[in-house]
């Protein structure tokens, strides 16, 4: 297997249930390295679950997730695939970063500590180096002056930009963005989206975004996946999905969302 031909992320008939509620029903999904992918669709259609599975916050009930040509939700024991152990996951999720809808900054740490915590303690980066990198990242998100502030002293938009810096500090190959602007006041959304546009422009990080910001999705993504009831209703480049959707489900969804805007 050539690493170049293999998709970076591969969902192979993935099933996820919460109790009786089947959220993902045999999902197949490929994402290539460096690709920017946006997941759209009505809430409850399983978009966020995909990100949470990749971050290992949830575990699959069926099927397998592959990352970088290796099993991710599972691991090999001999020739057999068994559910991955915590140790295995810790080794392999290093390459993945996530930004949450509710920011989830650690309130007991300053901004600097929030951003350096992961690199220093899970990647073993020396403190000074991590701190320098934190300054760079905070400059990039426009918050260098807040480095010694507590999260509670920041606005929602500022907290979310710190959370983005925190995720980038791990130098992830894959960045998961889970409705990162949904919890923000409308006037703060643009600042966060600008930062994400810049990341998309300046880096080759593979990005998976769940978002309701259609203009943003159109600008940054290479491919858009329209989800409905745990399945992909339609996928394609943004021009096609937004300009010429084939499926009725996509048309009605976009109509509802865009009218709302």
């Amino acid at each position: 297997m050539e690493p170049g031909n293999e998709p970076l992320i591969k969902f192979d008939s993935v099933v996820k249930r919460f109790g009786d509620n089947v959220v993902l029903d045999g999902l197949d999904l490929d994402v290539n390295a460096g690709e920017r992918v946006t997941l759209i669709g009505p809430s409850g259609s399983g978009k966020t679950t995909i990100l949470r599975l990749l971050m290992t916050l949830e575990h699959v009930n069926g099927g397998t997730i592959w990352v970088g040509g290796r099993p991710f939700s599972h691991m090999y024991r001999g020739d057999k695939l068994v559910p991955a152990s915590e140790k295995y996951l810790r080794e392999h999720r290093k390459t993945i970063g996530m930004v949450f809808q509710q920011f989830n900054l650690f309130p007991n740490m300053t901004v600097r500590k929030n951003v350096t915590e992961g690199p220093v303690h899970s990647l073993g980066v020396p403190k000074e180096e991590a701190s320098e990198r934190a300054v760079e990242l905070l400059e990039m998100v426009g918050l260098a002056d807040k480095i010694d502030a507590h999260p509670t002293q920041l606005s929602g938009g500022q907290q979310q930009r710190v959370a983005i810096a925190r995720a980038l500090a791990m130098r992830p190959e894959i960045l998961l963005l889970d409705e990162v602007t949904s919890a923000l006041d409308p006037e703060l959304v643009a600042g966060v989206l600008d930062v994400l546009r810049e990341i998309a422009r300046e880096t080759d990080i593979t990005m998976l975004c769940v978002t309701h910001e259609m203009a943003f999705a159109r600008d940054v993504s290479d491919r858009v996946f329209m989800f409905d009831a745990g399945r992909i209703a339609e996928s394609g480049p943004p021009e096609q999905i937004f300009g010429d959707p084939h499926e009725d489900r996509t048309k009605s969804f976009l109509k509802a969302v865009l009218e709302h805007d």
Binding site: M55, L57, N104, F106, H121, S122, R166
Partner: peptide
């Protein structure tokens, strides 16, 4: 969510 954010940073 705090634990989840810590898992996302790959903390033990």
């Amino acid at each position: 969510a705090q634990t989840e954010a810590a898992v996302a940073l790959n903390m033990t």
